[in-house]
Amino acid sequence: MTDMRRMKHRIVTGFQRHVANPLNRKRSAQQLLETTGRVSGVPRVVPVGGRRTGNEFWFVSEFGDRSDYVRNIRADNRVRVRLRGEWLPGTAHLLPDDDPVRRLSSLPRGNSAAVRVMGTDLLTIRVDLDG
């Protein structure tokens, strides 16, 4: 990874961790992903932006394998997604062969634009929702 990408990752994740994510977690309309911490075993909640299609929820990670929630999914792919205020259990699948830029074109525009601009290692994720 180049120094510029490393610096971009550090700046963006610092802002998200300390400013954006705490604020977004409080918004009732915000979609959230809950994973289990791979080391701590404690639930971890992060804001995401995606779209539900039937019993699937699709979104794109900005930093792929460098995202803590992606590493948590690798360790335990049982997750929960909060959509419209309701928590839904599911199974997350990392899809490295999917075209994340193309996928973003089918997801909400605002979040997709931010992911394209801020992201360095895009990765598509699909959550198969239970029920």
Rank of each mutant, 00 (worst) to 15 (best):
R6W: 02
R6A: 04
R6Q: 04
M7W: 10
H9T: 05
H9I: 02
R10A: 04
R10T: 02
I11P: 00
I11H: 00
I11S: 00
F15M: 06
F15A: 03
Q16T: 00
Q16F: 12
Q16N: 10
Q16Y: 07
R17V: 01
R17I: 00
H18Y: 11
V19T: 10
V19W: 13
A20E: 05
N21V: 01
P22Q: 01
L23V: 14
L23E: 05
N24W: 15
N24S: 15
R25D: 05
K26T: 13
K26H: 15
S28G: 00
S28F: 07
Q30C: 15
Q31L: 13
Q31P: 11
L32N: 11
L32R: 12
E34D: 05
E34P: 04
E34Y: 06
T35C: 05
T35P: 05
T36R: 08
T36C: 02
T36V: 07
V39H: 14
V39P: 00
V39N: 05
G41A: 10
V42K: 12
P43L: 03
R44F: 11
V45C: 12
V45K: 10
V46H: 12
V46Y: 13
P47I: 11
G50C: 05
R52N: 03
R52Q: 14
T53N: 06
T53D: 14
T53R: 14
G54E: 09
G54S: 09
E56D: 15
F57T: 09
F57V: 08
W58C: 02
W58T: 01
W58D: 02
F59E: 14
V60M: 12
V60W: 13
E62R: 15
F63C: 10
F63N: 13
F63H: 13
F63M: 07
F63K: 06
G64L: 08
G64F: 07
D65C: 11
D65I: 12
S67L: 10
D68K: 07
Y69S: 09
V70Y: 02
V70K: 01
R71T: 12
R71D: 11
N72Y: 01
I73S: 01
R74K: 07
R74C: 02
A75C: 05
N77F: 04
N77T: 02
R78G: 03
R78F: 02
V79T: 04
R80N: 09
R80F: 07
V81L: 14
V81Y: 06
R82C: 14
L83C: 04
L83A: 04
R84C: 00
R84T: 03
E86H: 07
W87K: 06
L88Y: 14
L88D: 13
P89D: 13
G90H: 03
G90T: 01
T91I: 05
H93Q: 12
H93M: 05
L94C: 03
L95S: 02
L95C: 09
L95F: 01
P96C: 06
P96D: 05
D98E: 15
D98C: 06
P100A: 02
P100C: 00
P100H: 01
R102H: 12
R102M: 08
R103P: 00
R103V: 14
